[in-house]
Amino acid sequence: MFQSLGKYILLLQLSFKKPEKFSVYWREVMLEMVSVGIGSLGIISIISVFIGAATTIQVAFQLSSPLVPRSIAGSIARDSNILEFSPTISSLVLAGRVGSSFASQIGTMRVTEQIDALEIMGVNAPGYLISPKIIAGVTMVPMLVIISIMLGITGGYIACIVTGDITPADYIMGVNDGFDGLTVRVALVKAFVFGFIIASICSYQGFYTSGGALEVGQSATAGVVYSCVWILFADLMITSIML
């Protein structure tokens, strides 16, 4: 385990060495940002709307006491979305979608000698392959999480209209009531850290692939599994530190 940690840290060091040519790296960063950001927008939108809607319905179901105002469901759904569902669930889904893609892309390059070809040319392969992915991860995941939060709250609003468990007016009142900016800051810190975890761990798994197609698949699986575990651990740590 310590050997793997050491290799991971050394790989990260190499990844952030000075690039051979900034313009070439910049192009790669842009491509990765499009791939991570635009490419994941569809799945993030779908899960956010549905989770937001389901959360609102469940909270409304549990608020059966006439002493509790119905609008509180909006507040609880909002904070649940901002603090937990949007950053964590989105990141777990992104680990599957983006992380497996990173690991298998780099792993395939390793087993087909494309990484060797980069090194022979004098290119810092970790820098060229991994740093654009990490930059894309730490910038795009927070953006996706912000979109996810907005869509999650919108999903709750739609659920109110469709089911009638809470009136839309009560829901909006609850969403606006007692909003604390700290929750958004916590969500963004989580998203930044989760983006880094997904990109770096999956790239690491891909970079040290050896063998053939079977091992590429195993690297992708390992990347996703380790990313998910570390996302959940980091979620707990950030939550306990910041709240």
Binding site: T112, A117, I120, M121, G122
Partner: peptide
Amino acid sequence: IRTQIGMLFQNSALFD
């Protein structure tokens, strides 16, 4: 030195 090296790999290793 590496910029003066050209290499052809067994499977060509073209960037796909």
